[in-house]
Design a protein around this nucleic acid. Structure first.
Length: 118
DNA sequence: TTTATGGCTGTCA
DNA sequence: ATGACAGCCATAA
């Protein structure tokens, strides 16, 4: 059947997959952008995860995703302030930050038993 | 179509 | 440890 991939709805499933993985992160735990990207089947898609989170629906715990340094990523102009909120939300969940404002990934990183669910 | 822009990351000085 | 750079790849204009 002559079908050309010009506007595939299946493609938008990428964000859906990313959101699905973020939703799996338990309260009081964190994951990195790169980690979510891999779990969602988008290797090297760390930036895409950030982009998807920016447009995430309200039921996605975006605050549980931080960068590989264990730090809350700073937003550009538009989302300024969200980084402070993110830290606050995480602290309310019990996640601890050190004096440098970083989370010890060895302790707080979420480790799914399975690579990816669904 | 091409260009610019990101809630990133790994490597090197 | 920190800072600069180059890859990465999808979305938006």
């Amino acid at each position: 059947m002559g079908e050309g991939p010009h506007t595939e709805p299946a493609d938008s499933g990428r964000w859906q997959r990313i959101w699905a993985q973020v939703r799996r992160i338990p309260e009081g735990r964190v994951a990195t952008y790169g980690q979510i990207a891999e779990l969602a089947g988008v290797p090297r898609g760390a930036r895409q995860v950030g982009y998807a989170l920016h447009r995430a629906p309200p039921d996605v715990p975006w605050q549980r995703v931080i960068n590989a340094r264990g730090e809350v990523s700073q937003r550009s102009a538009d989302g300024a302030g969200a980084d402070q909120l993110q830290r606050q939300l995480l602290e309310e969940e019990g996640v601890e930050f050190d004096l440098a404002g970083r989370v010890d990934l060895a302790v707080w990183r979420w480790r799914p038993r399975r690579p990816a669910a669904r």
